[in-house]
Amino acid sequence: MNLTLKIWRQKGPQDKGRMVDYKVNDISEHMSFLEMMDVLNEQLVNSGDEPVAFDHDCREGICGMCSLYINGQAHGPDRGITTCQLHMRMFNDGDTITIEPFRAKAFPVIKDLVIDRMSFERIQQAGGYISVNTSGNTQDANNIPISKHAADEAMDAAACIGCGACVATCKNSSAMLFVGAKVSQFALLPQGQIEAAERVLNMVAQMDLEGFGNCTNIGACEIECPKGISLDNIARMNRELMKASLK
């Protein structure tokens, strides 16, 4: 298929940036979206132009690096996938595809389609862990009884890969689905409950400090999340914060 690509080009963090049009021809419908980007970059390199910078790593939907906003949707027009799992068969010959970086004040553009998601790392560092010494004295996990329901919910929350699609798709650039998942995965388990109050207070404080917006329960984040993280995690985080604030 032959396509027209409208891609955000930005030389660096200080550059204003602009949309630039490119043509790519003979794209196979079996290609992944990132492979199509590789074809474009090969074309650009061969013609002496600067290739388009975009994030990618595992290319199998686990690392969460590929952060493209395609045709007005995070990770493009399909559900439950990252960009590397998006295939060109989702598009038609002659289509114009708009490709932009994930937008949020807390996700500044580094170059072209590459964004800085260190704000997520700093939120994690504020409390997204348990203070357990695991060097040699770890007890058997089965010694701690955990209900199947809690284990399942914790596992579902832990599936978050921190890609930032929730922030990118939210009209308020809110990070509450990400933080809700990170708070929940520990709050649901006995090992995490000891530091639950401190964790939620610190992580929410860091989230606010990073300049993310307020959640207005639109639910777009849940729909666009490649790992199906549920809004229930935001409700749980709200409850955890209320509980922690009353202590």
Binding site: M19, A104, K105, S173, G213, T216
Partner: peptide, 21 residues
């Protein structure tokens, strides 16, 4: 207003109807 400040640059193309009411 705070939320609009958190967004920064708007998308050139945004398909809000695909995932929210």
């Amino acid at each position: 207003l705070k939320n609009r400040k958190a967004v920064g640059v708007s998308y050139a193309r945004n398909n809000g109807g695909a995932n929210s009411t």
